[in-house]
Design a protein around this nucleic acid. Structure first.
Lengths: 198, 198
DNA sequence: ATAAAAATAAACCGATCGGTTTACTTTTGC
DNA sequence: GCAAAAGTAAACCGATCGGTTTATTTTTAT
């Protein structure tokens, strides 16, 4: 274990290989429905290796949720770092980015939401990871709203999160370019906070 | 099978007993995670009886989704039938009713959304039942929006569904009286359709 | 070159999965 | 009152579940 090449964030190549395969399978087929045998086959890794890195399936699920969160954070950070964008444009860019996810025919909802639905009340660590993911999402939106200079950034962020989650939930059912102009809806909700007190 | 007392909508008492137990378990623990043995124990019914009514577990799941839909439809119909409410008040009442669901600590998301996440691409009939549930929800909102006399009732209904789904998704994570005034948010989205073209 | 570390394939484990079958009892209609 | 229908309990089925073990091979560091 001494000299394995560490790829990033303390994850070795083999671990990443397993997590990626598990991530794809969980995303497509859900957590309970995906057996460990299928994961190891997809990852092209022996079961023993798998269990040397992840003591239980649920700990692998935790790692996958961490991987998912890292992916999302990288995407969002790239938006936040674009200096040419105003705070308002960054918020719109966050929604545009989310739409890229939603239009994928393989999109079956936010992984954290699905994990919460399957493990709420059954695995505290997973529950907490899902909760933390949403806290992070809300934090991103809130700090952007604060930059906007609106009266109550926390409340506006909460409203935007409702829009984001709502779009994600519906996206699983309606597979087509969104019926409405999301950008306009987001702007409208933002506008109400720059004009009146909320 | 000739003379069994039919309770409602072609469902016998025994069937309802099974569906109710399965409904509670699926709602709390998810579909894959809930085994048939647990369902029959909870329903106080032998496995043979269970399988005489529902040929497979997935057909039981279909029946449970139908039961869920009937429950929701009954609640919504009670709102729609209140003559003292304006169309706008009825829309607000729909959201108020949804909040009653959301604040329940046992609420783990819309059953149709969860079923879609677990069975999308795996069981066409279940997938379709979930889809039809959302179509019904959208239809209720659209007919109310049409009554409102707004310019584009379909688009407003879609926006309201986004709000409804978003609230539901978040409700699993944030267990507390909602941070924002939902009624105000709904009114705001509706107002934009009565004033401008959309 | 060699020994430790890390990987593999595959047999194996008890438990549970969805589902069937057998043998028996209760309820019901006529 | 009696036969058919509908119910029960429980053994049983092959498959799969999450997880372990064994025996062997490959990789890697010195």
């Amino acid at each position: 274990m001494c000299s394995e090449t560490v790829i990033s964030k303390g994850i070795t190549a083999k671990q990443l290989q397993i997590v990626r395969a598990a991530y794809d399978l969980f995303k497509e087929n859900g957590f309970y429905a995906t057996g460990v045998d299928l994961i190891m086959r997809r990852a092209q890794v022996s079961k023993r290796t798998m269990y040397s890195y992840f003591v239980t399936k649920n700990q692998l699920i935790l790692a996958v949720l961490g991987h998912y969160r890292n992916n999302c954070q990288d995407e969002i950070n790239q938006i936040l770092q674009r200096p040419e964008l105003s705070s308002q444009d960054k918020i719109l860019a966050v929604f545009e980015n989310a739409e890229k996810w939603f239009v994928d025919t393989k999109f079956h909802g936010c992984l954290a939401v699905n994990a919460m639905a399957e493990f709420a009340g059954k695995d505290e660590a997973i529950e907490q990871a899902c909760h933390q993911f949403k806290v992070w999402e809300l934090d991103v939106l809130r700090s952007l709203c604060t930059e906007l200079g609106v009266q109550n950034s926390a409340k506006l962020a909460y409203k935007l999160l409702i829009l984001l989650e709502g779009m994600g939930a519906i996206a699983q059912f309606v597979k087509q370019p969104c019926l409405i102009d999301i950008k306009q809806l987001v702007l409208q909700v933002m506008d109400s906070h720059t004009m009146e007190q909320n």
